[in-house]
């Protein structure tokens, strides 16, 4: 049996790697990835993606950030009329929390003790800053230089931040393990598995 194919919409370059990992685990074949360059652009086009999802399975990842108190509220606001094959998931509060949820691997990757990484990343107000601050304490100079913005920088992240997040998502991140520490990730995996079942049982 071949795995069902699915199209993907994500905010940025680094989210693509994460989305692919999730879809591999949920046994989908990724057909196309639409990288949007920010949540505002994604929101603008959500209606079109949702329209297409009436016909093709679709996976959309969009950070919750501070845009709503909780994920369901934001879904209601952005996508009141969800198409049947649309899997619209919201990391709480940013995709970094899903990466931090794999405590063992992220601690090794960043070169910080696992005890420094909280057990409930979904509760973090700003997981991205938490991740960067962890990297600040890394024993690896390379990690610090890549991920932490230089002094006097206006940028919130270091020069190879995106590249490092992609590397981690691709090569080290274990979403299954991570889902034990992140409810929003566990729900996302469950939703993808359900969608897969629904699609394969139809054929």
């Amino acid at each position: 049996m071949t795995s069902p194919s699915i199209s993907v919409t994500v905010e940025g370059n680094s989210d693509e790697a994460l989305a692919r990992k999730l879809l591999e685990l949920a046994e989908f074949t990724v057909s196309y990835v639409y990288v949007q360059g920010g949540k505002d652009r994604l929101d603008e086009k959500l209606r079109a993606f949702n329209h297409a999802a009436k016909f093709t399975p679709w996976f959309v990842l969009r950070d919750l950030d501070q845009d709503a108190p909780c994920a369901p509220d934001l879904v209601k606001e952005l996508l009141p009329d969800r198409a049947v094959n649309m899997c619209f998931r919201i990391p709480v509060r940013t995709a970094e929390s899903w990466l931090l949820a794999d405590r063992k691997n992220i601690s090794q990757f960043l070169g910080v003790p696992m005890s420094k990484i909280g057990a409930n990343p979904d509760d973090l107000d700003d997981p991205k800053t938490v991740l960067i601050n962890l990297a600040r304490k890394s024993k690896s100079k390379q990690i610090r230089e890549d991920i932490v913005p230089p002094t006097n920088a206006v940028a919130r992240v270091g020069p190879a931040y995106v590249s490092r997040i992609i590397e981690f998502s691709n090569e080290y991140w274990d979403p299954r393990k991570a889902s034990k520490n992140s409810k929003s990730l566990a729900k996302c995996l469950l939703a993808l598995e359900k969608l897969n079942q629904a699609l394969t049982s139809k054929t």
Binding site: N13, P150, A153, A155, G158, P159, A160, V162
Partner: peptide
């Protein structure tokens, strides 16, 4: 230029 790691100093 969309890479968020590019700093305004650069």
């Amino acid at each position: 230029l969309a890479d968020e790691g590019i700093d305004a100093n650069e």
